[in-house]
Design a protein around this nucleic acid. Sequence first.
DNA 1: TTGAAAGCGCTACCAT
DNA 2: ATGGTAGCGCTTTCAA
Lengths: 338, 338
Amino acid sequence: MSEFMPTMADVAREAGVSKMTVSRVLADRDVSVAMRERVLAVIEQLGYVPDASAGTLSSGRSPFIVALVPSMSSSNFADTVHSLNAAVTAHGLQLLLGDTDYDLKQEEQLLRVMLAHRPEGVMLTGSYHTAATRAMLKRSKVPVVETWDVPRTPIQQAVGFSNVDAACEMMRHLHERGYRRIGFIGGATKLDRRGLDRQMGYREGLRLFGLGEPRVIEHGGSPVTMSHGGEAFSLLLDAWPDTDAVMCVSDMSAFGALMECHRRGIPVPRQMAVAGFGDFEVSRYCFPSISTVAVDPHAIGRIAGEMLLAGAVARKSGLDGLSEKRRVEFQVIVREST
Amino acid sequence: MSEFMPTMADVAREAGVSKMTVSRVLADRDVSVAMRERVLAVIEQLGYVPDASAGTLSSGRSPFIVALVPSMSSSNFADTVHSLNAAVTAHGLQLLLGDTDYDLKQEEQLLRVMLAHRPEGVMLTGSYHTAATRAMLKRSKVPVVETWDVPRTPIQQAVGFSNVDAACEMMRHLHERGYRRIGFIGGATKLDRRGLDRQMGYREGLRLFGLGEPRVIEHGGSPVTMSHGGEAFSLLLDAWPDTDAVMCVSDMSAFGALMECHRRGIPVPRQMAVAGFGDFEVSRYCFPSISTVAVDPHAIGRIAGEMLLAGAVARKSGLDGLSEKRRVEFQVIVREST
DNA sequence: TTGAAAGCGCTACCAT
DNA sequence: ATGGTAGCGCTTTCAA
């Protein structure tokens, strides 16, 4: 087998046509049926694969949409990415995916590398970014959508919900159920702004319903894990033994807390209520099932895709910076644990 | 603000040097300190971002490693990808990630698109692929590594373990514990070959230890979910009420089965043992904790990265097709559920 | 250490 | 419906 990698010129020569005809066949433009078949046969026979960088350079059109998430292991973000992917793939684009590990500085560096591919759009997670990140995005004129949060002043477009409000709704539910000594467990890291917003919602709920001083345990890094939840719950009980409900920053930690209750023989919800956030699979199927705040990660991904596509069209028409905010619903799902 | 996107030529002119000097500064080649600083200042001031497609086209070197996984939502694959990413990022490469949805035909189509970027390497999941996939890979001469399985005849390199053997080891454990009427629950789809291999291991275990006829429930699609597990477990009890242990194709379904036991008041493991596969977080922290087969997804990703990097070097030296198989350890982890 | 020229493989544009 | 030419922005190669 030859070491040789065929180019469009090879296909053209072999088929006895011009490069342009080959290019048109691949782009599905106007070519006669006979011609198309002849060219396709040669492509097949040679095993020709077009070179994307040449195409991009020549046309000025990139096939990429950049998507930056804090973690791919989180099913929420994985779901958002999956739907975003479906949305953009339908338009012939592909995802260039990056994993920031909950680190804004790393988000900035990743973005710098990825902008070199001149993407048609950029999806970011959250509304907190470095100044350099914002500057790069502004300068590049690329369509941008921030997700999972709705900032007061988005870079451009945004789709998400208020984590503060959502957490506060869960507090309303707990209060209505009669719980009065409610604790909160979340991560120790300042990097997870959505987690901090949820804690703010908890505090707002305390004030709103007159539930006294905060009982907050910050423990563990990002992403929040089940074991963090169990440990944090133990710390919470040490600090405030009379706690009658615990609100968790995520279903993962809620599950950890719930299992710790099992181990200690604490009946849930009779003696201790447990609330989660995110509607992860585990909270629906565990026993007792965990009350949680449900959002639709797929909707976020799908809408982000639509916004980016619209932004790409707008940019081509010379229009500047769409600026739309869209909110997705969140909903307190009451299950057995509260 | 201008609509204009600066090129290397702009930087060069502004700095009063040639394009080559700018290129060298960016590549960190030999340039005098004074010159470097002058150029970097202009780059900063202009907000210049190099164009990756031009660079790729000109140098013939792509910055991409392609990674194709059945699903990003599975934490096992997410972990593998994470480690692969760490390994290749250290060498200045970036991942082009694809999600096949457990569909070999989609794997083929994704690969076709991604080969257009002339990647330096390709990571595949599993050892089953379409003929066209194999042909493309062979022709492109790109370094390839198959993961999560160790095929008899890999396309090139492979890193993984035998799912058959691993499942059989779990059967040995169950047999030693005294269980004799063991069922198996897995997915209904033929697409998950690793799942089928695990079922084969179950059947081999039955024969090896003289445990009678198979009790197999195939239920639900890919990826396997917790709810599939609960439903399949119910079907298993309907079909073979005297079952005393259930081996599950994944920790997800094992957890579903375990929760179904809770609901039915079946004590675990006294009346029913539950075994999983994959050592997911949930199996370690649930109650009772679930015995499982642990593999190291991070090791698979890291080794895959090393193999690909080695393959890229070999290719540059004109060498052809490295062919190495590496096995990672698996281990039966005994917990409370068996 | 720096520069000039050529060319990577493709598509836009204008002809025919 | 098809072809020819120019050029995208960079790196390679060779020269100074």
